[in-house]
Design a protein around this nucleic acid. Sequence first.
DNA 1: GCCCGCAAGATTGTATACAACAACGTCTTG
DNA 2: CAAGACGTTGTTGTATACAATCTTGCGGGC
Lengths: 241, 241
Amino acid sequence: MDDAAMNSRQQRMSRATLGSSPDASIAQSLSRAIHEHKLTPGLKLGEDELAEVYGVSRTTIRAALRTLAHGQLVEVVRNRGAFVAQPSQKEAQEVFEARELLEPRTAHSAALKAKLKDVERLKVHIEQEHEAMHRGDRGHALYLSGQLHVEIAKIAAQDTITSFIQTLIARSSLVVALYWTRESAICEQHAHDKLVDAIAANDADEAEALMRSHLIDLHSALDLTPPKSAGGSLRELLAGD
Amino acid sequence: MDDAAMNSRQQRMSRATLGSSPDASIAQSLSRAIHEHKLTPGLKLGEDELAEVYGVSRTTIRAALRTLAHGQLVEVVRNRGAFVAQPSQKEAQEVFEARELLEPRTAHSAALKAKLKDVERLKVHIEQEHEAMHRGDRGHALYLSGQLHVEIAKIAAQDTITSFIQTLIARSSLVVALYWTRESAICEQHAHDKLVDAIAANDADEAEALMRSHLIDLHSALDLTPPKSAGGSLRELLAGD
DNA sequence: GCCCGCAAGATTGTATACAACAACGTCTTG
DNA sequence: CAAGACGTTGTTGTATACAATCTTGCGGGC
């Protein structure tokens, strides 16, 4: 049963994403799984286990985990292992503050630079997002929803800031997993539609305003006030007894 | 001569920076060397060589190089190795645009939150910077000069943005190494002095304005206009024949 | 009965060994 | 003599083996 399971697993993903660098492919695979909430915050990512799943050695897994750790998607504790990160309320707050600082400005710039080809890609993206939503694949819809923001940043052609936004989107996914209170995410759909329309029309000011209000809306849907425990902070909760 | 050299080297740095994680210490050591322009852009960082210098195995070196690669201080090419990064003019431009977006706002926030203790640390920092400059240790002065910006960001207590700024400062060091045109950096000294004074006085608007003009001043001291070749673009130059 | 210490198991950290790839020089050939 | 093919050498990529550390369950002592 060992070899059969391993082979099928190894075949299943192999190197779907990139032709080179197995560790990069694995990092991306894990990153996506976290984005889609298949791997939830706090989950332990054992090296041996992952090595068996992906059919590579621990060396490769460690490289992938380290990559993710630098992007703050996983937290590695020395001699303890790697866990899917659990941003605190404070960190969650900071992530959205940073987004509110960077993204409206980026949307503005993107609206100015957007070519037809760019707009087409955005619309395809939204289409896939809608489809995933209707299909009931909430995880994938969530992933695409975040990626739309990255795609907009890419249009602005500021690679440095784009990479920052990419990091923030990734962390946002964890924040949503931990602190999201709203039942449905349909509200976002319309926001994204209007945003892309503004970019398509090269209306920079409108795009900036829409992005800002969209982010504020998302931010307000988070429950960041109570210091609720999320698995590892029992000590703090019981400290008052 | 082998063992003697290796031992002395191993002893010399051992783990001066952090008590744990040899790879983190090595990454920091290399990062600092790059900041101080001891390692210049384009330099090859051979794994075996570094392993011997630090007295560890290639495994550890690879982890450190990967960390630096993620911070964009080194570029790793598959099957070719790691090199100190050589940001293009476009990337250099972007780095400073990003700094001009993030840092003034951060300085504003820092000025509002600065406690006496924080200001003290900044002043010590500046003192060291002046001292290094007078001692003629331009590399160390440069390093401290960048770190002052990081320290200011830390006061603003926005860890997410602070880490972005840290990345930008690191890349700025490479940009300066490649495109700096001004002979002396003394002009910065006064800018830093005034900036810290404004923060000490909790004058947020003044701090923000000073930071903005300081960055513009730095930016203007770079030679980013000519598309001069830096080693690998011969093909482009000869494409017109 | 509860708590502290200790040993066994499991997991991560590091080093070493082998495999794969790229760069370079040499040799052959047109 | 120039251009291309091939073997050599050195470097990186990956896997495996061993060492160090943490966790966990058990037993003795207070």
